[in-house]
Simulated scan of single mutants.
Amino acid sequence: MCRASSFLLYRRVSSAWGRTLPFLSNGNRSPYGSVRHPPIRHIRSSSLSWDSQRGVKTDVDSSEFKKWHNGGGWIHSSAKVEPTVVVEIGAVVHSGSVLGANVHLGSGAIVGPDVGIGQATKIGYNASLCNCSIGDHCIIHNGVSVGQDGFGFDVVEGRMLKKPQLLHARIGNHVEIGANSCIDRGSWRDTIIGDHSKIDNLVQVRLAANSCVTKSINEPGDYGGFPAVPIREWRKQIAKIRQITKMPQSPK
Rank of each mutant, 00 (worst) to 15 (best):
A109S: 15
A109Q: 09
A109P: 10
I110S: 10
G112W: 04
P113R: 15
P113M: 04
D114G: 09
D114R: 15
V115Y: 06
G116E: 13
I117D: 02
I117P: 01
G118V: 10
G118N: 07
T121W: 01
T121P: 05
T121K: 07
T121V: 09
K122M: 13
K122L: 09
I123D: 00
Y125V: 15
N126Y: 09
N126P: 06
N126T: 13
A127S: 15
A127Y: 02
L129A: 05
L129M: 07
N131T: 07
N131A: 10
C132R: 05
S133G: 03
I134R: 08
I134T: 11
G135M: 07
G135V: 09
D136T: 15
H137N: 14
C138V: 11
I139D: 10
I140M: 08
N142S: 14
N142V: 13
N142Y: 08
V144T: 06
S145G: 09
S145N: 12
V146I: 14
G147Y: 01
G147N: 03
Q148Y: 03
Q148S: 06
G150I: 00
G150V: 06
G150C: 00
G150N: 05
G150Q: 05
G150P: 00
F151G: 00
F151A: 01
F151C: 03
F153D: 00
F153N: 07
D154F: 07
E157D: 15
E157W: 02
E157I: 08
R159D: 05
M160W: 11
L161F: 01
L161C: 11
K162R: 15
P164V: 11
Q165G: 04
Q165S: 04
L166Q: 12
L166R: 13
L167G: 03
L167K: 14
H168Y: 12
R170F: 03
R170T: 13
G172R: 12
G172M: 06
G172K: 06
N173Q: 00
N173F: 02
V175E: 00
G178C: 06
G178E: 03
G178M: 09
N180Q: 14
I183G: 10
R185W: 07
R189C: 14
D190Y: 07
T191V: 00
I193A: 07
G194D: 09
D195S: 09
D195G: 10
D195P: 09
H196W: 09
S197I: 10
D200A: 15
D200V: 13
N201T: 12
N201C: 10
L202P: 08
V203F: 03
Q204T: 08
V205Q: 06
V205Y: 04
V205W: 02
L207V: 09
A208E: 07
A209F: 05
A209D: 14
C212L: 03
V213N: 00
T214E: 06
K215Q: 14
K215L: 03
K215F: 01
